[in-house]
Simulated scan of single mutants.
Amino acid sequence: MTRYKCTDNTLSRRALLITTALFPLASLAQPAVTVEVWKTPTCGCCKDWVKYLQESGFQVKVHDVQDTSAIRRRNKIPDDYGSCHSALVEGYALEGHVPAREIKRLLRERPAAVGLAVPSMPLGSPGMDGPAYGGRRFAYDVLLISHSGGADVYQKYH
């Protein structure tokens, strides 16, 4: 059996096989999407939503602010659709307790829109669904906010 000496310019057959086998896996790995969140420092449901996003595979960068209304205006979310925290993800605004499933759908579909909102703080939405809320759940809508300031139902939750 002939042995080949590995030099700086050649790969051993084993190294070549390992590299070839792992290359498809490396191409599948995608960096986590970052969601940037503005919330007040004492809001428990905001902290729960951040934790929920992290558990759903997002990286989260948190900014504690005293008032989120300026961020909401900067993100072009009308006050009628306001909630307790505002966020940005890949150029889209997120307002309130938006489910991760709809964020991922938004990023897949890429509609011409400002972003998504779950107005108010509906019980049963992500971050408003823990034991502290007694397991109560209310129906709510995830709204797709248009550039004109209007909104359409993007997804209903019952």
Rank of each mutant, 00 (worst) to 15 (best):
87 A>E: 05
101 R>K: 15
93 A>H: 04
109 E>G: 06
108 R>N: 08
79 D>Q: 15
94 L>Q: 09
83 S>F: 08
80 D>P: 00
93 A>Q: 06
108 R>F: 06
99 P>N: 06
77 I>P: 03
94 L>G: 04
83 S>Y: 07
109 E>A: 12
83 S>V: 13
104 K>H: 08
105 R>Y: 02
83 S>G: 10
104 K>M: 08
77 I>Q: 05
104 K>L: 11
95 E>M: 01
91 G>M: 11
90 E>P: 09
100 A>K: 07
78 P>Q: 10
90 E>N: 14
87 A>Q: 08
105 R>P: 01
75 N>P: 03
86 S>T: 15
88 L>D: 15
109 E>R: 11
100 A>E: 02
83 S>D: 06
109 E>Q: 14
100 A>T: 06
88 L>T: 13
84 C>W: 08
107 L>N: 11
95 E>G: 00
101 R>Q: 14
98 V>W: 14
111 P>I: 00
92 Y>L: 03
89 V>Y: 03
94 L>Y: 05
89 V>W: 04
111 P>N: 00
98 V>F: 13
78 P>R: 12
79 D>W: 09
105 R>H: 03
107 L>Y: 09
88 L>R: 15
86 S>F: 03
83 S>Q: 09
91 G>V: 11
95 E>V: 02
101 R>G: 08
87 A>T: 05
91 G>I: 11
112 A>E: 12
108 R>W: 01
92 Y>V: 02
101 R>C: 04
113 A>K: 06
90 E>A: 14
113 A>M: 10
88 L>Q: 15
112 A>F: 03
105 R>V: 02
109 E>S: 10
76 K>E: 07
103 I>R: 05
82 G>W: 00
99 P>M: 04
95 E>D: 01
80 D>N: 09
101 R>H: 06
86 S>M: 12
76 K>M: 04
87 A>W: 05
78 P>G: 10
83 S>K: 09
96 G>S: 02
110 R>W: 07
79 D>M: 14
100 A>R: 06
90 E>W: 06
102 E>L: 03
75 N>W: 08
102 E>I: 05
84 C>P: 05
79 D>L: 13
81 Y>W: 14
105 R>N: 04
76 K>P: 01
90 E>D: 15
106 L>H: 01
97 H>D: 13
112 A>S: 07
102 E>S: 09
107 L>C: 13
92 Y>F: 11
81 Y>P: 11
81 Y>V: 13
98 V>K: 15
103 I>Y: 05
98 V>E: 12
88 L>Y: 08
110 R>Q: 11
92 Y>R: 04
114 V>R: 00
109 E>H: 06
86 S>W: 02
87 A>K: 07
111 P>Q: 00
100 A>W: 06
94 L>F: 09
111 P>G: 00
110 R>T: 02
81 Y>D: 08
96 G>K: 01
98 V>S: 13
85 H>W: 09
86 S>I: 08
86 S>C: 09
99 P>S: 01
78 P>S: 11
87 A>V: 07
109 E>C: 06
99 P>T: 02
89 V>Q: 05
91 G>E: 09
78 P>C: 09
